[in-house]
Simulated scan of single mutants.
Amino acid sequence: MTSKPFSACSVAEMRRALQAKRKPTSSKPLPPEAVARVDQITQVVMSCFQKGDPVRVQLRNHQGEAVVDVKGIPLEKWDTLVETLKAEKDKEPQA
């Protein structure tokens, strides 16, 4: 790889350079049970908000472990979300 000014790079060269810099993703897919569980969580979380609220629920693979990110929760709706999640947790059968 040779060095050259940014302005001299083509789009394809920039894409290749960015791809080379990215960390590889985990090759192990998440189990379907984790995906199904996050779908349930997403439905519960989104039921607390109106369409257009900036709330996002995302499942990601972090070193082979399923991780859920919940972002964009308006502060005035925080208590409602916590109460809803607690109620949902109480519905689950105890292990």
Rank of each mutant, 00 (worst) to 15 (best):
L18D: 03
Q58Y: 00
T80R: 11
I73E: 06
D69M: 14
K91R: 14
N61S: 11
P5S: 15
P31C: 12
F49Q: 15
R22G: 03
L30N: 09
S47D: 05
Q43N: 10
E92H: 11
D39G: 11
R22M: 07
S27D: 05
K23L: 08
D79C: 08
V44K: 01
P29G: 13
A20T: 00
E88A: 15
V38N: 06
K89T: 03
E83F: 06
E76K: 14
T42W: 00
A34Y: 00
G52E: 00
K21S: 07
V11A: 13
E13A: 12
A8V: 02
K86D: 05
D79K: 15
K28E: 00
D79R: 15
D69R: 11
L59G: 08
R22V: 05
P93R: 13
G64H: 08
K91F: 01
K86V: 02
K77G: 05
P31D: 09
P24G: 12
D90A: 15
K71A: 09
L85A: 15
T25G: 09
V38T: 07
W78A: 15
A8Q: 09
R16C: 04
D69N: 09
R37L: 13
A20L: 05
S10Y: 03
Q63S: 12
S27A: 13
A20V: 01
P29N: 09
V55R: 09
K86P: 03
P24M: 11
A17P: 01
T25N: 05
Q19D: 04
S10L: 10
S26H: 03
A20P: 01
G64V: 08
P54R: 15
Q63P: 03
Q43F: 10
L85K: 11
K28M: 11
R22E: 02
A95V: 10
K89N: 07
M14I: 10
M1G: 11
P54N: 13
D69Q: 11
V45P: 04
P5V: 09
S3W: 01
Q43K: 14
K51R: 12
F49L: 15
A34G: 07
S10Q: 10
S27V: 04
E13G: 09
V55P: 02
P93N: 12
Q58F: 00
S27M: 06
M46Q: 08
G64Q: 08
V45Q: 07
K21P: 01
E13Q: 07
V70Q: 13
Q40D: 10
R60P: 02
K91H: 04
E65K: 13
H62E: 06
A12G: 05
L81A: 09
G72T: 09
D90L: 11
A20F: 00
T84Y: 02
K89A: 11
K91N: 08
T42R: 10
V35Y: 00
S26I: 02
L30H: 09
Q19Y: 02
K4E: 00
D90K: 14
V67N: 02
C9W: 00
P74Q: 13
D79S: 15
